[in-house]
Design a protein around this nucleic acid. Structure first.
Lengths: 132, 132
DNA sequence: GTATGTGCAAATCGTTTGCAAGCCA
DNA sequence: TGGCTTGCAAACGATTTGCACATAC
């Protein structure tokens, strides 16, 4: 399984740089707009293509918001979950050993195999709770 | 807050009946097609409107699949989670006290308030695992 | 040089909405 | 009757795709 490395283009570089600075989950559209604001003229389609590829390569994490939009965020390696602020979008990674174990056990009890789970916490972060 | 009861129309009745028989998560489009197959001619838009309303009234549960489509399913009351088969769509409700507690604690530790969580397990059910 | 990436516009596709006509209470 | 519902078609909005051109390697 030889995964071929994508070419280094100024667009791809720009997206990577942006993701390194923005540590919250953002839609592709928002990211595209942010790129435009900092002077990088990139086609929206390219942003989508780039993000999809990065997601496939697990270089970014994705999330579906309640509107069905896909949110992207640069992420550390390994399996983890998120605690996302519904107001400002700030996200923290959290590990959840307890949940991992529970998921496996529950699935096994019901005879399920090839288990995969989704666990996301959302709420108002400290700052947004204060400035309500 | 007075929630007004929707009128009883043959369309609404048909959707309700169908949901009572189909106990798996299905897309609005699929449900619409199922209605057509059993002879109920209902506009797709009406199916969407009805399902949205039922979802708002918590008469059905909704789920977003990885394609961004909304899945609907008749559901028991109260807070619970699902164990869904990725192959046949069969879903079982599971309660997860352990997860509820973990969610609250984790959120509190990070200073988050108004917490709400999403926990879904997916995999292959016993039958689908066997007939692979 | 050539496979790959990009931009643009058009195409998709699930879902929503406007509006006139129909139907329940 | 009078307002809530429906159907149809048009509108929407996020994402994808076709294709000609540009570019990394």
């Amino acid at each position: 399984m030889t995964t071929k490395t994508p070419r280094t283009t100024k667009q791809r570089t720009a997206v990577l740089e942006l993701l390194n600075e923005v540590n919250e989950f953002r839609t592709a559209q928002t990211l595209h707009q942010l790129l435009a604001e900092r002077g990088d003229t990139i086609g929206l389609a390219t942003v989508y293509r780039t993000l999809s590829r990065m997601a496939a390569a697990e270089e970014v994490d994705t999330l579906l918001n309640s509107d069905g939009e896909t949110l992207y965020r640069r992420c550390s390696d390994g399996h983890h979950h998120h605690l996302v602020c519904v107001n400002c979008g700030k996200a923290e990674e959290i590990s959840a050993r307890a949940v991992e174990i529970w998921a496996q056990e529950t699935a096994a009890e019901h005879g399920f195999t090839d288990i995969h789970h989704t666990v996301e916490l959302a709420g108002r972060c400290r700052d947004c709770s204060a400035s309500r």
